[in-house]
Design a binder for these strands. Sequence first.
DNA 1: GTCTATAGCTTGATAGAC
DNA 2: GTCTATCAAGCTATAGAC
Lengths: 223, 223
Amino acid sequence: MLKFKYGDGVIKKDKQTTRERILDAAEELFAHKGYEGVSIRQIMAKAEADVSLAYYHFKSKRDLFNEIMLRRVEILNDIRLKALEAVEERHPGNAPSVEEIIDAFTHPLLDLLAREHEEWKYYFQLIAHINNSPDWGGELMTRYFDPLVRRFLEALKKALPDCDDADLYWSYHFLSGALTLTFAETGRLDNLSGGAAKSSDMASVVDRMPKFLAAGFERLCKK
Amino acid sequence: MLKFKYGDGVIKKDKQTTRERILDAAEELFAHKGYEGVSIRQIMAKAEADVSLAYYHFKSKRDLFNEIMLRRVEILNDIRLKALEAVEERHPGNAPSVEEIIDAFTHPLLDLLAREHEEWKYYFQLIAHINNSPDWGGELMTRYFDPLVRRFLEALKKALPDCDDADLYWSYHFLSGALTLTFAETGRLDNLSGGAAKSSDMASVVDRMPKFLAAGFERLCKK
DNA sequence: GTCTATAGCTTGATAGAC
DNA sequence: GTCTATCAAGCTATAGAC
């Protein structure tokens, strides 16, 4: 840990604690290689700290992973719930449009990713990874996101009162796939489009996504 | 390798070669844990063959992975191209609808997965994994699927002549995310819906997906 | 094609000094 | 909180007998 001396001899630590540096390093590596593709040694090398400190701050590799997930999830669910409530308050008495509801679900995330890219990029990539993992997707996405998702589905049900349950759930599933692939920022879109669209360009996707997805919900749900 | 004796003493080997058993075992394990989450020893234990045989049949772990990808990709791209050509032949002179084109892109895969589930399930899960990997998604999806995807995008451009290029590419990106998450069969949808929709129920998604996605393309692209 | 044996290295995790 | 040292296990890959 670097230390800096100031004027009167007060010792001030580097602004990040070791624990935070470990979490940051692990988050980035897990996002790229997956949980099992990364070793504690690689994490601690990146965090510039000794291997044994991983076990001082976290009781195991799996525990470290869980802490990474928990560190940011509450912030995300909080801003999305607030966005939904704000939309609902703008339409007292009747339901907001499907596009407005989906915008409340996706916009806060894409906006956060656009504005604080370095801070959030790897966390979102990790979520993309987990959402598409046959081993972990079912359990972890359910645990961390289902309460919020159910709240959004209720709102969508009011906007689409005649919608069949299965149509609504499948529509949400398509939304989820589109959203998390966008998080992954694989560069594939850049290759495919020859530069006409960029995987990392959140500003250019933030308006397109709710439009695209709302149209899907409406076509599947309306009789 | 098991051997069976028949009537006149002819010795017939088990129908699968060792090489195929290795490919099958590795495909399943890679689909679940990712490339780096699986060891050659785990693969060969599942394949019920000696570790050294992995290196006899394949020159390295990475080469084994490449062979897994190659083994099935041509079949997929072939049936999808044929499906597109069949749709185009049904509309001589003018363009097929967006929904018909997307159906030709998705239906063959979902149908294959529905009909030969055990044969294809793990390969599709592996593709879901790769598509969402920041490390591999850009390179591998481009290598294996871009020629076919470009062919489909040309067809879509004819069906949506006023569509902005960026809108078209982003629409395809949303399609890709929805499709590959469906491949992943994580069970998350089952949890969320309380059983009203099942991740593995390809018959119930095969009609919904083209409808949903075509609506998205059309809304983003039409002026 | 299949086996045994092994080289050389990395893994997750811990004990114990400071 | 941070370090050194270490363990037992597992890792990719190869050499060589049959």
